[in-house]
């Protein structure tokens, strides 16, 4: 059996468990929708127009939604001692990391696929559809970065009593570069037509974000064996 099929086996199990319990997705969805409604009342109650700062607000909502999901990402493993079951299996522990990154990435993406169109229809007055590929690339890379470092930090905190507190404390500073770059990409695209200089800035942000993702993923993958189960 290849590494890919071992990753798929663990990922498939996570997806089945989430589809059955919906514990993570429902709480993430409710949280992100509530955040957006509050943003609207706070910043633009009468006009329903968040075009100027839509990207920033969107990522504020996503980062806290992601933290909510990350805190739940090992919940099934903690119940019944299933993490020990995984660690007993003859698989490379880094493959457990990869499958967990993918499941966290997928769950956050599902939330975004539902909420971004809603947010855009109600609050964004500029049609950024011509730049949709670049926009989706920014969301994709942002998610990957958050899932990579978030999964690592969640694993570090998994055996501590205050893991709900530790994940944001350890994770948010490490996620700041990801957030800054993701907001630069999404914010500029949502706010209006991109001039040559802004387009250059957005493309540059995409390149740096991809670099951050690679560094975070490779470093976490390499170090994972030392943090899980200890």
């Amino acid at each position: 059996m290849t590494s890919f099929s071992q990753i798929w086996t663990i990922l498939k199990k996570d997806l089945i468990l989430e589809l059955r319990t919906r514990e993570m997705l429902i709480s993430m969805f409710l949280f992100v929708m509530l955040t957006m409604v509050i943003f609207n009342y706070s910043f633009s109650a009468d006009r329903n127009d968040l075009t100027a700062f839509g990207g920033g607000l969107l990522w504020i909502a996503f980062i806290f939604t992601a933290l909510l999901g990350l805190n739940r990402s090992f919940a099934h493993e903690k119940e019944g001692g299933c993490l020990d079951g995984l660690l007993l299996s003859p698989i490379d522990r880094s493959l457990i990391y990869t499958s967990k990154v993918l499941s966290n990435f997928i769950f956050l993406s599902i939330i975004q696929i539902i909420t971004i169109p809603i947010f855009t229809i109600f609050f964004i007055r500029y049609n950024y559809f011509p730049m949709i590929v670049l926009f989706i690339l920014g969301i994709f890379l942002g998610n990957l970065g958050i899932a990579s470092i978030g999964t690592f930090v969640t694993t570090l905190a998994i055996n501590t009593k205050r893991r709900d507190l530790l994940v944001p404390i350890l994770g948010l500073p490490l996620m700041m570069p990801i957030l800054w770059l993701a907001v630069t990409i999404s914010g500029n695209i949502m706010a209006g037509p991109l001039g040559p200089n802004t387009l250059k800035e957005v493309v540059r942000a995409v390149q740096i974000l991809a670099l951050f993702d690679i560094v975070y993923f490779v470093a976490s993958y390499g170090l994972y064996d030392f943090v899980i189960g200890e």
Partner: peptide, 27 residues
């Protein structure tokens, strides 16, 4: 193999799925 007081089983998978999950990981 390890049998402990923790079952190491997923509550929201059925018996067959649990055994299949571990069986695939162990090839």
């Amino acid at each position: 193999g390890l049998i402990s007081h923790n079952p190491l089983l997923y509550g929201d998978l059925n018996a067959h799925e649990n055994l299949r999950f571990y069986g695939v990981l162990y090839k």
